[in-house]
Design a protein around this nucleic acid. Structure first.
Length: 491
RNA sequence: CGGGGUGUAGCGCAGUCCGGUAGCGCACCUGGUUUGGGACCAGGGGGUCCCAGGUUCGAAUCCUGGUACCCCGACCA
């Protein structure tokens, strides 16, 4: 019993941390706030990347790469943007080290000070729009639909593996359009794409909506978001898509000549999802036995464990397994045969449950004699013995079933945890005692939002896109409101 | 940046109050027995006790200064 997980009921955040460490997803590095993503964790991220990249390309986007460093002056161009990001940036001031004159290691060479400091990108709008100025002259150059996969740095004060790290991996899309309508259409297209990815691939239901002014991206006109609900009742912002209006075009002088021959500022969007999605994925489905991964993103979808006493038995089992593996692979299923003799079956069962492998096949002498195999599914922990012929077909169907089942489970949890509040007392009680999303009327003012946050820690997660017009009164101020918004305590 | 805590083997910790041979569990190595839910026995290897200075015959332990990380708040994808 090497790896004990803290249970969720005992201490949810410790459970999360234990899980990330013990499932070998990531660990803290020698650098404060920065993590090492380990091979198993990175393999999950690669699967996410592959699918997202495909979805971006299917919608007409192309990849490019812009520099890690951004001249400091670029940050002063867009006022709201500076305000939002300036505080948390890492800055490069020198370009050379030299041997310490006292003979101890190296020191910064004071003669190597940069003329202009370089900011390590917290996001790339500025460097990209500075570049777009040279790329865009005419409406014929538009739209420009570019994505980049990159790392960014935000000097966060408190960090948590995957959920908030000083350096993180993400993709950031930056598009340029000739009309406001087209840019808004792009913003919405992407938030829908993110929602589809979250639900179909991560099996994680999300609420699509628009951010309030307080929660909006620095420099955006509108921020669209997908919000997910974690098992502890806290919300996690999982992806954002921003309509930037002409703010960055104006800041970086990006103009195009329209069909009428008139110069206009370009319309912009930007959008991103990050390795935070890993945190969301981990928390969305996992249990006290470890990770539960949706089959579509599991690096190993099926593990086969042999059970044997003598080496002859192992040989016989391996021969049978060698027939099964090609059939599974032919169906596009990723399979691992763990015939490592140093670990007992019980150890392997526990280990692969911890790692969230969706399906486990176990085969021993008994199965060999009966022509069967033991099939165990990670989501429900159910086991059954099935005939070994056509097991590949069964496993393929089962993987699909698991994908659906964990989504349904997460969806009903989410839906059970959206509650309406019509009075301030009711609101406070729901936030404090039940958590989850609370749907309530809000007067639309930043002050009210701020006061609610101070008193309950709850913030407006979003104004849901599918919300209906409904006359009501703000739960805090009593002022009139035309629709409900979703509040929650967030990560 | 405020409040609290911790730095001792790869990991988790005891030892520190009261100075005197650096320990335990897991992991690791060797051999054997095991293998249908985290095996057992025997043997073995592994340490600048966070750093610097001080007190002392002698410091993981006492004193001074530093430093790193973790947790709780304010800030955030």
């Amino acid at each position: 019993m090497a790896k004990e997980l803290t249970s969720r009921s005992e201490n949810y955040s410790q459970w999360y941390l234990d899980l990330v460490l013990k499932a070998d997803l990531a660990e803290n590095s020698a650098v404060r706030g920065c993590m090492v993503i380990k091979p198993y964790g990175y393999a999950i991220w690669e699967k996410m990347q592959a699918q997202l990249d495909k979805m971006f390309k299917d919608t007409g986007h192309v990849n490019a790469y812009f520099p890690l460093f951004i001249p400091k002056s670029f940050f002063s161009r867009e006022a709201a943007h500076v305000e939002g990001f300036a505080k948390e940036c890492a800055v490069v001031t020198h370009y050379r080290l030299k041997n310490d004159p006292d003979g101890k290691g190296v020191v910064i060479d004071p003669d190597a000070r940069l003329e202009e400091e370089l900011v390590i990108r917290p996001t790339s709008e500025t460097i990209i729009w500075n570049t777009y100025r040279n790329w865009i002259q005419s409406h014929r150059d538009l739209p420009l639909l570019i994505n980049q996969w990159a790392n960014v740095v935000r000097w966060e004060m408190r960090t948590r593996l995957f959920l908030r790290t000083a350096e993180f991996l993400w993709q950031e899309g930056h598009t340029a359009h000739s009309t406001r309508e087209e840019a808004i259409e792009e913003t919405v297209k992407i938030i829908n794409l993110y929602a589809e990815f979250a639900e179909k691939w991560m099996a994680m239901p999300v609420v699509k909506g628009v951010k309030s002014e307080n929660e909006r991206f620095a420099g955006a006109v509108d921020t669209y978001t997908i919000e997910a609900l974690m098992q502890d009742g806290k919300a996690l912002q999982s992806g954002t898509s921003h309509f930037l209006g002409q703010n960055f075009a104006k800041a970086f002088d990006v103009l195009f000549t329209n069909k009428e021959g008139v110069q206009e500022y370009v319309w912009a969007t930007s959008w991103g999802v990050s390795t935070r999605l890993m945190g969301a994925l981990i928390m969305a489905h996992s249990d006290d036995n470890g990770l539960v991964l949706p089959p579509k993103l599991a690096p190993i979808q099926v593990v086969i464990v042999p059970i044997y006493k003598k080496m002859e038995e192992l040989a016989a089992i391996s021969a049978k397994v060698d027939e099964i593996i090609p059939k599974l692979k032919a169906r596009g299923i990723t399979v691992k045969y763990d015939d490592n003799d140093n670990r007992k079956p019980g150890w392997k069962f526990a280990e692969y449950e911890l790692k969230g492998v969706p399906v486990r096949l176990a085969m021993g002498p008994r199965d060999l004699a009966n022509g069967t195999v033991e099939v165990a599914r990670r989501d429900t922990l159910e086991k059954q013995n099935l005939p070994v012929e056509n097991i590949d077909e069964y496993v393929e169907i089962l993987l699909g079933e698991i994908q659906e089942n964990i989504f349904r489970k997460a969806l009903s949890f989410r839906d059970e945890n959206i509650r309406k509040a019509d009075t301030w007392e009711e609101f406070k009680q729901l936030i404090n005692e039940k958590g989850g999303f609370v749907s309530a009327h809000w007067d639309g003012s930043a002050e009210t939002e701020q006061r609610i946050k101070e008193e309950t820690k709850a913030t407006i997660r979003c104004i849901p896109l599918d919300g209906e017009e409904e006359a009501g009164q703000c739960i805090f101020s009593g002022n009139p409101s035309s629709r409900r918004v979703l509040f929650a305590v967030a990560y």
